[in-house]
């Protein structure tokens, strides 16, 4: 235990001396600024609508629905100018009247036909609403009850936790190892009774502590005391530990930062892909869910916004536990058999 504490203190001092704690503090301030100053709502529409009908009934209807400026137009010139500058949007031109509505779509980028049909159904519905003919005939059931949509500034917190906070260990632990190789401190460590256990656990604890120091203020500022901190911190700790262990394992096989960096970036990019599914939940190909950060980010989301309990996130916790076990075993074998045996 004494050896472990001494090793941990050394790592902590090294991290502080190299500005790691300072940079974590600066990153925390940047993230806090995002949480505090990001708008609570940002409506992004994929279409722009021009109403050329007499009386501009559709434009009035959509404006009353709160669709907002830069989406609904009654001036053709302004509409064309704006559409030209936003080629990713579908231009919709409404003409005719309520009895004979005519819509023309202008498309400047690849859009699946299903999404066009979805837009058609939505416009049909708007016309029926205007005619006073729309009726809700199919009942809807909400399996978890109706929950409020989280504001945008809080919605980024799971992303910040899983793709930023817990990655501290992934980024820095390898570099610490390379520095120890270069400064020959590892050679000195080999002749001490410290061993692979202390080496791995000390580094892992350092980055768990840093991740909590980075993540906890974010959670406190965003949610106050209204969330299940035990559960959320457990998820943060387990994900941070998993990423640190993976990084330790990979780093053993590289001589220096320059060699490791490009492979590290590749792993990092792959690990960050589930952030796309988080932003666009309807996009989740099966292979995406195999990336460990995928269940982690959704479990964090469910705890923060959907009042998920231990039972709800148990499968993710079990998965992270298994991945931590595998990560530890791989890191231990690599460090014991290669790193601490090299000449």
């Amino acid at each position: 235990m004494k050896r472990f504490i001494s090793m941990f203190m050394q790592d902590l001092i090294l991290a502080n001396r190299n500005g790691l704690i300072l940079v974590t503090g600066i990153l925390l301030i940047a993230m806090l600024a995002l949480v505090l100053f990001l708008p609570k709502q940002l409506k992004i529409h994929n279409e722009m609508i021009l109403d050329l009908s007499q009386g501009t009934i559709l434009a009035t209807y959509l404006n009353n629905q709160g669709v907002g400026e830069d989406v609904v137009f009654i001036e053709e010139q302004e509409f064309n100018q704006k559409l030209e500058k936003q080629p990713n949007k579908v231009g919709v031109i409404f003409s005719g009247d309520l009895e004979n509505p005519v819509f023309a779509f202008l498309i400047n980028s690849q859009i699946p036909m299903e999404n066009i049909n979805l837009l058609k159904a939505s416009l049909d519905r708007a016309i029926l609403d205007l005619r006073g003919e729309s009726t809700a005939t199919i009942p809807v059931r909400f399996l978890r009850g109706v929950m409020q949509t989280p504001p945008l500034n809080l919605k980024i917190i799971p992303i910040a936790l899983v793709f930023e906070v817990v990655l501290l260990g992934f980024f820095f632990v390898s570099v610490m190892m390379f520095q120890e190789k270069q400064e020959a401190t590892l050679r000195a460590y080999r002749v001490t009774p410290g061993g692979a256990w202390n080496y791995i656990l000390s580094k892992n604890l350092l980055f768990i502590v840093l991740s909590i120091a980075y993540g906890l203020p974010l959670l406190l500022v965003g949610f106050g005391l209204s969330i299940n901190y035990g559960l959320i911190l457990l998820l943060v700790v387990m994900t941070a530990s998993m990423m640190t262990l993976i990084s330790l394992f990979i780093a053993v096989f590289f001589r220096n930062l320059s060699e490791w960096f490009f492979v590290g970036v590749a792993v990092l990019v792959i690990n960050s892909l589930p952030s796309i599914s988080y932003g666009i939940p309807s996009f989740s190909p099966a292979w995406m869910s195999w990336i460990p950060s995928y269940p982690a980010v959704f479990a964090v989301r469910d705890v923060l916004f959907n009042a998920a309990t231990w039972v709800d996130v148990l499968p993710t916790i079990v998965l992270l536990l298994v991945l931590n076990g595998i990560g530890f075993l791989l890191a231990y074998l690599a460090i014991q058999r290669k790193l601490l045996k090299e000449g």
């Binding site: 004979n100 498309i107 400047n108 980028s109 939505s122 049909d124 029926l128 199919i138």
Partner: peptide, 29 residues
């Protein structure tokens, strides 16, 4: 979603639609 699903399931054709692809229509942004 509820209203769009209902509308799609009804199969009713309410409006006339036409589609024009711009010069760069096949582009994936």
């Amino acid at each position: 979603l509820q209203s769009v699903i209902e509308q799609a399931l009804s199969g009713d054709v309410v409006a006339q639609y036409s589609l024009t692809q711009g010069e760069s229509g096949a582009r994936s942004l």
